[in-house]
Design a protein around this nucleic acid. Structure first.
Length: 818
RNA sequence: GCCGGGGUGGCGAAACGGUAAACGCAGGGGACUUAAAAUCCCCCGCCCUCAGGGCUUCUGGGUUCGAGUCCCAGCCCCGGCACCA
């Protein structure tokens, strides 16, 4: 476009100019000294992206813009805002993409990162690029490994067997998302099985209660806190002991422990069920049943983990031939195995109470097992037949001495009674599992452990970190072994750091969520390579003031980050235990009412939009779509609104003059400042933008000449959304330096926000019949008289009896009549 | 099934229990312009020919002088978890 007249708004020129100046002046960067000494520090964090080959999508830009707007607002109010960015570039996504393209991830990632960096700079975020973090950089994952070592030394990392999805054709482990819903391998279509292999776990379950308790006192989006609460899944109940009986009915040495939330129903436990993987299956199974049991277990093992979790209408299972003694009734009850009982939850064994549990009821019906009622609700007694499991309130029946007791009381009393005989105890159980961090893959940080046949697993000495991921051209999983690194003999052959004997490195890499679980600790300390984070800087900047991100990370990433912070706190490295003081989940952007997806072909591509309208307009539009925490719907034509607004703002500002204030316009400006000041902190961006538009409309109403004093506050308030044009107009209004430096957020004068006249709504029986204008603060008698005089109101008050009059000062008058 | 979040004009959305639809898009009419872009003015929930009136925030009840907003019951949509004992 030809720039005719120097006063035309040309977004690309303005944005290029200011992006260049920001970089030259290092407006958004911190030196080490600045980080060490900043007053009023504000750590503004957003979730770092995984640098895909496709580049930034609108979802990313939406999230980053919302966070950046917050940071820029804080900066305008005078805070020193640290807003870092980085790349979460390890993991299965990158690895799979690299495999598909036939490119090595070590070549792929840098070019993706370059592309992301270019796009991020173009959108105008106030990122401190001097403190960028890339999780695949050895200088970063050195510390990821260091954290593993600390947790290992503290006994928070342990090795145990766990099931994984195994493709027998690819001979490799698959993540759950690589298993199709049909239970087939997504690559070769073979039916996936489960295998049990030894893997590394962080014992996050030790922190379950603290992770739950702290939820009460952190300022996080409610939805996120609820999701974490459910994920932790605390349930109170009892662990009860059922002795295994030998063939002649005498006790053996073995006992099956079960977890139940309903110890009150133990008199109704008519059989037991073990998970097929339960270690006591071999003990309890009788010779005659060995064949069927083994067959069932093999079949269960063939089902992959995804299929296994599907709720099947028909329950399967087999009788082991063995029996246990019900510790309450003293009766011998049969022990079955069935895959509806999961080894991962509770003790992997249940007492089945078909009368009062839906799953047990269904199973008992299918296999003709006895169903006994032990809770009677209203209108039922001990002999009332059960057509379905009864889950309601009631009193205990068929329960020996406990008959007649309310079930809630029974829970406690029966647990106590069994505990007294060493047959049970009250326990709290959590749904949360330990965090499996092993990945039998290539593209991740090697787990820093050396296996020695004499010493067992030994941590790599800290002085030898990082354990560098070797460049392996053939990183594709194949049939030679579990992890690609297990093929690189010269890499894994080493010596034991403790005894010096021949030893072997761990060949698994760690979970991406470990990389992303601590990156916020690293950002302010990237200037140091001799420590994971600097103590003083960390004390000054952390915990993070505001963290903004998607709720898809409500449980995994956010839970792991909390856990790692807590663990590092307990090990004495941090003086806080919650990493994010405030967390806000943003909403989702749809396009013409539909979720964006590549297959639907309705993905909004940012680059051409920014090219056409500029980053400022794009940012403003995204924030205007709807409430930031709820998301909004992107429509291609809608961008005209914000585009026109910035044009009008430009024209108004460049032609503004000095002069005497018009009180009505001045009032609008002050009201707008008030609203923006109140709504910015709570991310109410869409209504702030509406208010700014209204204000500009008022300032320009009837083509009037705007005053500098009216436009300048508007320029500052629009700056978080549209930083480039704001800088330019700030300069053109005659100011020196950046609008973001010096705390230029406008102040409002409460006195100037009040109107002297107000419009009262006049209702008759709650229906609007007219409006009248009165002076602000008019007392009842006068206001009612004015209202009554209004022509249309008067007509509605004829031929009726007035019962009373409601007056709300400066609001309305309501005549109640009959 | 459980846990969240929602249902308001043609569309995105606003509304301390107090004039429903602010702000914007789309649409219609007009001004300026050779033309386009940008800009400016007017109209815009539905029904009744205007003054005026009636109806309208998913449905049905309730509380209240007054309910989109509070309470009860139900329907629908979206997201997450799901054989959790």
């Amino acid at each position: 476009m030809v720039n005719e007249g120097r006063d035309a708004y040309v977004p690309s020129d303005v944005e290029a100019k200011w992006q260049r100046l920001w970089e030259e002046r290092r407006t958004h960067s911190f030196t080490t000294e600045e980080l060490e000494s900043a007053q009023t520090p504000f750590y503004n964090l957003m979730m770092f992206p995984y640098p895909s080959a496709e580049g930034l999508h609108v979802g990313n830009i939406y999230a980053f813009t919302g966070a950046d707007v917050h940071g820029r607002f804080q900066r305008l109010t005078g805070k020193r805002v640290f807003e870092p960015i980085g790349f979460d570039a390890f993991g299965i996504h990158s690895e799979n993409f690299a495999l598909k393209q036939g490119v090595h991830p070590m070549d792929l990632i840098p070019s993706n990162v370059r592309n992301f960096t270019r796009q991020l700079k173009r959108t105008g975020g106030m990122f401190d690029w001097d403190h960028m973090v890339d999780t695949t950089d050895p200088s970063y994952y050195k510390w990821t490994q260091w954290i593993f070592v600390q947790l290992f030394k503290a006994g928070l990392a342990e090795r145990k067997e766990a099931p994984v999805n195994w493709c027998p054709s690819c001979m490799t482990v698959l993540a759950n998302e690589q298993v199709l819903s049909s239970g087939q391998c997504e690559r070769c279509g073979t039916l996936v099985e489960q295998r049990r292999i030894a893997q590394w776990f962080f014992t996050i379950t030790k922190y379950a209660q603290r992770l739950l308790d702290n939820l009460e006192r952190i300022d996080w989006s409610d939805t996120t806190r609820k999701a974490q609460g459910n994920w932790i899944g605390r349930s109170e109940g009892a662990e009860l002991r059922f002795p295994i009986l030998s063939a002649d009915g005498s006790h053996t040495d073995s006992v099956i422990d079960v977890f139940t939330t309903r110890p009150d129903t133990i008199f109704g436990a008519t059989y037991m069920v073990l998970s097929p993987e339960h270690p006591l299956v071999d003990v309890v199974t009788t010779g005659a049943r060995r064949g069927v049991v083994d067959e069932y277990r093999a079949e269960a093992a063939r089902k992959d983990l995804v299929a296994r979790q599907k709720v099947d209408k028909t329950k399967s299972g087999v009788f082991t031939g063995g029996h246990c003694r019900n510790p309450a009734t003293g009766e011998a009850i049969p022990v079955w195995i069935a895959d509806y009982v999961l080894m991962e939850y509770g003790t992997g064994a249940i007492m089945a109470v078909p009368g009062h549990d839906e799953r047990d009821f269904e199973f008992a019906r299918a296999f003709d097992l006895p169903i006994v009622r032990v809770v009677a609700g209203e209108g039922a007694d001990a002999d009332s037949p059960l057509q379905e499991a009864y889950l309601g309130d009631g009193v205990l029946v068929n329960s020996g001495d406990f008959d007649g007791m309310p079930w809630l009381e029974g829970k406690e009393k029966i647990t106590g009674w069994l505990a007294g005989r060493d047959l049970g105890r009250a326990v709290v159980n959590y749904r949360l599992h330990d965090w499996c961090i092993s990945r039998q893959r290539y593209w991740g940080p090697p787990i820093p452990i050396i296996h020695c046949s004499a010493c067992g697993p030994v941590a790599v000495p800290e002085s030898e970190l990082p354990v560098v991921l070797p460049r392996v051209e053939d990183f594709k999983p194949d049939d030679t072994g579990i992890s690609p690194l297990a093929r690189v003999e010269e890499w894994y052959r080493t010596t034991c750091p403790e005894c010096g004997a021949e030893a072997r490195r761990e060949t698994d890499v760690s979970d991406t969520f470990l990389d992303s679980g601590w990156y916020f600790l690293r950002y302010p300390s990237t200037d140091f390579d001799d420590r994971i984070f600097d103590e003083d800087i960390t004390r000054r900047w952390l915990p993070v003031d505001t963290y903004i991100g998607g709720n898809e990370h409500a449980v995994l990433h956010l839970m792991y980050s909390r856990f790692l912070t807590m663990a590092l706190h307990d090990l004495g490295y941090l003086d806080f235990e919650e990493p994010f003081t405030v967390f806000r989940a943003h909403g989702l952007i749809t396009h013409d009412g539909a979720k964006m997806s590549k297959s639907k072909g309705n993905v909004v591509i940012p680059d051409p939009i920014i090219e056409e309208f500029g980053a400022d307009t794009f940012r403003l539009y995204l924030m205007f779509l709807g409430p930031f925490e709820e998301g909004g719907d992107y429509r291609d034509e809608g961008i005209q609104g914000p585009f026109g607004f910035l044009h009008r703002l430009w024209d108004t500002a460049v032609s503004a003059v000095d002069g005497d204030a018009d009180p009505a316009v001045e009032r609008k400006v002050h009201l707008t400042i008030k609203q923006a000041t109140e709504q910015f902190p709570s991310l109410g961006y869409n209504t702030v933008i509406a208010a700014l538009m209204e204000c500009l409309n008022t300032v320009r109403a009837g083509g009037r000449q705007a005053l500098r004093s009216e436009v300048e506050p508007l320029v500052v308030m629009v700056a978080p959304f549209a930083p480039h044009i704001a800088e330019e107009l700030w300069e053109r209004l005659g100011n020196q330096g950046s609008v973001f430096e010096g705390g230029h957020w406008p102040e409002y004068d409460e006195a100037k926000t009040v109107e002297d006249a107000v419009r009262l709504a006049v209702q008759v029986n709650g229906k609007l019949r007219g409006t009248v204008e009165v002076a602000k603060g008019t007392e009842e008698a006068e206001a009612v008289a004015t209202a009554r005089a209004e022509e249309n109101v008067a007509r509605h008050l004829e031929d009726v009896t007035e019962r009373k009059v409601i007056y709300v000062k400066d609001r309305l008058v309501n005549f109640v009549v009959s």
